[in-house]
């Protein structure tokens, strides 16, 4: 959660495609004044983002065409960084792992909805439980690494529990076998994500009118109708929004992988973002890293096309 704090999160990108252009272009004095007002409101955010967000991104789009190591003068190389990526076996591997990581999305979303439904009621102690479920979200990456590495250790509690229950005969190597490492890291992503998406779905569930809920609670038959005709449609935009973010988060996954396996063992958890980091700060190959980043962005767009489509069809009203 370093600088990229914002990257784990996002609003709805869909608005780009849906926002309507101003209809009339006749200029009036009041109109101009409204425009000025609008920009005045936007000014602090735009200035800060221009300096600290847009400028680095623009620079990134420039250096992907260069050989840039920070220490030596930049050298223009055209599309060489891209052709290199297409031939780079490790990059292919990292793409594959990042795509595999999308498996997290449906599981995580379903679990989060279930948990949100579970805590969306007033019971004694419910605040405590909501806090407990949010703990993974606020846990620093460092603490996550320490505790999960212990959990996954070959002598750790997970193996202990599973062997005691007789579910496995000998310890499993969660983070140290090629086969299990990626799924094991995915588990951490899900563990961290549930609380976060729970909050989003909770917000969605809270927008279900209380009267309808009360009615449904009394009359068993109408409960299903409320779920079907009120809850699900109300939740739909939230699901799409969360899915979009989740897909993006999966394709950009960095923190968990970096601190738990560093991309290993034997590159079995190398994801695009981790590979990009190594190219940038390990090999000082910032030009190539920028090119990898651009390919990553393109993939995020491609994988979210179905989500955008559904937004355009269904969630339109809400977004």
């Amino acid at each position: 959660m370093a600088l990229g704090a914002a990257s784990a999160t996002s609003g709805s990108a869909s608005r780009v495609t849906l926002a309507r252009p101003p209809r009339k272009r006749r200029l009036s004095h009041t109109q101009v004044r409204r425009w000025v007002t609008a920009y005045a409101f936007l000014l602090p955010a735009l200035v800060l983002m221009a300096v600290f967000t847009f400028y680095p991104i623009i620079m990134g789009m420039v250096i992907m065409f260069y050989d840039y190591t920070v220490f030596e003068p930049m050298e223009f190389v055209g599309f060489a960084n891209f052709s290199r990526a297409f031939a780079d076996q490790d990059f292919h591997k990292s793409v594959l792992h990042s795509v595999e990581y999308i498996v997290v999305v449906p599981v995580l979303q379903i679990l989060s909805i279930l948990v949100a439904v579970l805590v969306n009621r007033s019971l004694p102690g419910i605040t405590f439980f909501r806090t407990a479920y949010y703990i993974p979200v606020v846990t620093s990456t460092v603490a996550v690494a320490i505790s999960w590495k212990w959990l996954y250790n070959s002598n750790g509690i997970l193996n202990y529990a599973l062997t005691s229950l007789g579910l496995i005969e000998r310890p499993l190597y969660w983070l140290t076998s090629k086969e299990l490492a990626l799924p094991s890291v995915m588990m951490v992503t899900m563990w961290k994500g549930i609380g976060w998406y729970m909050v989003i779905y909770l917000a969605g569930l809270q927008s279900v009118p209380k009267e309808l809920e009360e009615a449904a609670a009394i009359d068993g038959a109408s409960r299903w109708r409320v779920i079907r005709h009120v809850t699900i449609p109300l939740l739909k935009p939230y699901v799409l929004f969360a899915t979009f973010m989740s897909v993006m988060g999966a394709l950009q996954v960095f923190d968990e992988v970096f601190v738990m396996t560093g991309g290993g063992p034997l590159k079995s958890t190398l994801t695009m973002a981790v590979y990009q980091y190594y190219k940038a700060f390990g090999a000082f190959d910032f030009g190539y890293a920028a090119a990898i980043g651009m390919l990553m962005a393109l993939m995020i767009l491609v994988f979210n096309i179905p989500v955008f489509r559904m937004l355009a069809k269904g969630g339109l009203k809400y977004y």
Binding site: N153, S154, Y173, T176, S177, P265, L266
Partner: peptide, 21 residues
Amino acid sequence: IPRETLQAGYAGALDRYQAGQ
């Protein structure tokens, strides 16, 4: 030697040793 030997590296061996295993 454990099957995780190649991947667990230094830290893995040290953890195992510290656990008395």
